[in-house]
Amino acid sequence: MNIFWLTGDLSHLAAIVILLLKIWKTRSCAGISGKGQLLFALVFTTRYLDLLTSFISLYNTSMKLIYIACSYATVYLIYMKFKATYDGNHDTFRVEFLVVPVGGLSFLINHDFSPLEILCTFSIYLESVAILPQLFMISKTGEAETITTHYLFFLGLYRALYLVNSIWRFYFEGCFDLIAVVAGVVQTILYCDFFYLYITKVLKGKKLSLPA
């Protein structure tokens, strides 16, 4: 493990916890895409099936369990506990346009044609685009609460740090996972526009709002 890997994981954890706490403290999931959170729950579920087949480390296992538990808790808060605050009218991204092509691609391009590996590859491809429902929702409403932008920032930062981790591991450990790197680049690119707005607006104390 290197510093980029660890800070990537912690950034990912921060994002998940920020979102969970935001919904819990404000008793509201306004401005949050429930569809996006369903996709992330699907991502964690399909990727971490190896919890049942292999043990890597206590750190690895506990982080996987925390990610899964938090993502399901978030989905529960949005669709059950605080359902009345869920803004379904603005959460209209067609997720089948992501899940179906990504499912097809994971059958075609993977490291090994086995159920577990295909599901894991599916999760990597899906994660790279899973933020689109949330970004789409922000573009529809034209604004985002500041705490939501912090969530998005840490979520985007995590994958950027993982890319640096991939470079590190290529040089110092001689391993390179092309699927993870390409998906990571796609994922990070999708955040670039948001990163720009976050740095130029939110960090200067302004609310993130898009021109009409």
Partner: peptide
């Protein structure tokens, strides 16, 4: 290096 199919990253 980790063996192929060994998903040590999250």
């Amino acid at each position: 290096p980790p063996a192929e199919g060994d998903h040590d990253e999250l």
